[in-house]
Amino acid sequence: MDSESSSPRIGQLVRINRGREADQYAVIVDVVDESFVLLADGDKRKFDRPKRKNIHHVDLLDYISPEVENSILETGRVTNGKLRFAISKFVNEQLADWKKGDSLYGER
């Protein structure tokens, strides 16, 4: 795995694997530093109050929402509806396409 794909990016979907929100999906809305990101899902965790999360406590998925990424880079904000849409689109389309033996999270 190269360093570019292992570094978090704005608009990238993650699966939370530690804490109260374990096994839920969220979108990276900001990268604080090399160890922490800010996450929001548009539902329980809104864009205005993102969750600060250690990068080691999430699985970076190989999917970046272009709608979320473009909105944040152009205006500095994204609507909670776009966050919910990005997560539901990923869950409905991408997860349905992956077969049972395929790895969602890359190699560990």
Rank of each mutant, 00 (worst) to 15 (best):
V29Q: 02
G42F: 05
G81N: 09
E67N: 10
Q12L: 02
V14C: 10
R45N: 07
W98V: 13
F47C: 01
P8G: 03
R52T: 09
R77W: 07
E93Q: 10
F36I: 08
S103G: 09
D102A: 10
R45F: 06
V27C: 09
N70V: 07
T75R: 13
D41A: 03
G19C: 01
R9Q: 15
K82V: 05
E67I: 15
L83G: 03
I72H: 02
E21D: 14
Y25R: 01
R9T: 03
D41K: 04
K44V: 13
N70W: 02
R20M: 13
P66I: 07
E69C: 07
A26E: 06
L13M: 08
G81S: 11
S7Q: 12
A40M: 06
T75S: 15
Y105K: 07
Y105A: 09
V32F: 08
G81W: 01
K46T: 11
R108V: 12
V78P: 02
D43M: 08
G106R: 04
K46N: 04
F85T: 12
F90Q: 04
M1W: 08
V31S: 04
G11Q: 01
V78W: 01
Y25Q: 00
G101V: 06
T79H: 00
R108Q: 11
A96R: 09
T75F: 03
L39H: 02
F85H: 07
K44L: 14
G101M: 07
R20H: 10
P66W: 05
R77N: 13
L13E: 00
S65D: 14
D97I: 06
G42T: 08
I55G: 02
E74V: 07
G101A: 11
V78T: 07
T79P: 03
V91P: 02
Y25I: 04
K44N: 13
R45V: 15
N92H: 11
D48T: 11
D30C: 02
G76Y: 00
D43V: 09
S103Y: 09
Q94W: 06
N17C: 13
S71R: 06
E69D: 05
R18Y: 10
R49S: 15
A26W: 00
D30P: 00
L83V: 02
Y63A: 07
S103T: 11
T79N: 03
G11H: 06
E69H: 11
E107D: 14
D48P: 01
R9I: 06
N70G: 03
N92L: 08
Q94N: 15
A26F: 01
G106D: 08
V27W: 04
S103C: 08
D62R: 13
G42Y: 07
Q12A: 04
R49K: 14
I16D: 05
G81R: 12
T79L: 04
L104W: 07
P50E: 04
E67K: 11
P66G: 05
A40F: 01
F85S: 10
